[in-house]
Write a protein that binds this DNA or RNA. Structure first.
Lengths: 333, 333
DNA sequence: TTGAAAGCGTTACCAG
DNA sequence: CTGGTAACGCTTTCAA
């Protein structure tokens, strides 16, 4: 219709130089008025790129997307991607067996140009497959298996911030409710907290590992509270454990922060509106999402990103769940 | 490698009859051993179908995926789709203007064969675009604009269940904290509750509309509590308003359920672990997700689904947030 | 600056 | 039951 070859049309669509200004304008106007959109499959086939990224996150309970971190991260990633004209193909794995199949479903058939992957997700098989296909990917979180292309919060720093806050309030007997011990970041958080306590000449914290299941968190916290009457503050090292912690305290008739102080690693919109509000170390989710997408975009374009890893500092959001310690009565209920 | 034409290979890959048993086996074995996966773009181009569905949900606050309904619904949909070998392309819109662009980004270029769409999302423009492209879609929720192909919870029934529960506990002065009044389902929920009260010869409920913003919910509930001392129970007609409601009560020194009872429309994993646990009308999210995907799959295959609408009943999950009424002191704090 | 033509990896049709 | 051969709608050389 513009009396030009499709090669020329292709050039203007893709913003490739070497097209006359008037030709370009004419073609663009036609595209606009016809509401023409190039067929994604055809482009994918010819150009060997789909402009789509995969998003693979770990299974966290029955509803994968109800954790305190991933839904927000996914929201940010989706928006950052959309801003760059990139689509997001989602994959959530439920059972352990599904991880691999979900993973492969998305990688299969060159459907995506790259992926953002939760580091926990990362088994040897998955790694092998990614490398084999030379599919660019960036991880959210550090993995023991591979040290390139990831974004992460500074876990040790976050734990330090939380602990310093507790120590500043006067606490000396601190318990840590931490996630599963095979997760690298869980260890980082424990270390960060312990270091602070040692620096202050305080005893090492009690550490209890717990899966991301609220009922189990309740049991763990009850165990801590019953067996360690001296503990006056709990550092809940993952947002998903906060609700269970609060429930355990409430069930035992303990008032937060009056009887026991609570800090959370991870913030969540509703933490601000609980009573008391939960003092939390907030992960820089926006920055993490933006950095991950940015890094992946570079990789997908075949360029080397400025940095192969991006560690971002979290910050403390002080609300009402931490107070000065007081002797806790050791008689639950 | 199997000494057959690509036509034959295509037939076995797609399970099309008319291939000799031995030929088929030979080809399949080769496919297996070579770990061959057909190129999705090429298939999409040739067959005019991408085996991908779009998922478009409304903007609810800063992080679209932190509501009490959508993240779980998305999880279910993703898994149901994966079970059928269908990929999910995600689109979350943030600002009002973004809705349209997010919407179009995903529809553009025949990237998807169909979509599941939050009914709230549904403006005339979007509808026109979908129909124009004759893109199959099913809505989550009823829309005033179009009455075909949707799944929905029975909103009126859910409201009835919640209200009956309150009435059975002895409440006669009930307030409803409802979502924005332009949402069809909000109206359904209000009607359901009012009908029950009338059937029992009780006065109509106080109704307060509120956006899905926790801070606003707090203000609204404070308003109700202060201006209507007789109100002894609140029907929170959307899960996203629960946290705000609880905060308002706590801030005013009111104990739930002792001073005031609370039922929620929408359940959420953490409702079980608050203190008290929140009594809720649970939406049948699994069924809704499965039904939506099933319906869409039929539509994408060019078949007419068994039913053009699917209304599924919710059920009550009784926990600790409702008790018999007692005279509430009208002196906050 | 532009056009022509050769793919890209499938599916789908038509013979045989 | 199978092979050959056009599409499918683009991108990407290579010449002009």
């Amino acid at each position: 219709m513009a009396h030009v070859s499709k090669g020329t049309v292709s050039r203007v669509i893709n913003g490739i130089p070497g097209v006359g200004d008037d030709t370009r304008r004419r073609v663009m106007k036609l595209i606009e008025s016809l509401d023409f959109h190039p067929n994604a499959s055809a482009r994918g086939l010819a150009a060997r790129k789909t402009n789509t990224m995969g998003f693979v996150i770990p299974h966290t309970g029955k509803y994968t997307l109800t954790s305190t971190f991933w839904p927000m991260f996914l929201t940010v990633v989706t928006q950052e991607a959309a801003a760059r004209g990139i689509n997001v193909l989602l994959s959530t794995a439920r059972a352990e067996d599904d991880v691999d199949s979900a993973f492969r479903t998305i990688l299969r058939g060159r459907r995506i140009d790259g992926a953002i992957i939760g580091a926990e997700q990362f088994g040897d098989k998955q790694l092998a497959e990614l490398l084999l296909k030379s599919l660019p990917f960036v991880m959210m979180g550090r993995s023991a298996k591979i040290s390139s292309y990831y974004v992460d919060v500074d876990n040790a720093l976050g734990a330090r911030i939380a602990s310093e806050h507790l120590v500043a309030k006067g606490h000396s007997r601190i318990a840590i409710l931490a996630g599963p011990d095979w997760l690298p970041y869980v260890d980082d958080r424990i270390r960060g907290a312990r270091d602070v306590l040692r620096e202050h000449g305080l005893p090492d914290p009690v550490v209890v590992h717990c899966s991301y299941d609220t009922a189990e968190a309740v049991r763990c916290v009850q165990g801590i509270l019953l067996s360690r009457p001296a503990v006056s503050a709990i550092f809940v090292a993952a947002g998903d454990l906060v609700v269970g912690t609060l429930k355990a305290c409430a069930d035992m008739g303990l008032n937060v922060p009056h009887d026991i102080s609570v800090v959370s690693f991870d913030d969540h919109p509703f933490f601000a509106h609980l009573s008391p509000g939960i003092t939390a170390v907030a992960q820089p989710i926006e920055e993490l999402g933006a950095a991950a997408v940015q890094m992946l975009v570079e990789l997908m374009a075949g360029r080397e990103p400025e940095r192969r890893a991006m560690i971002i500092a979290p910050h403390l959001v002080e609300r009402g769940s931490c107070a000065a310690p007081r002797d806790r009565e050791n008689t639950p209920r």
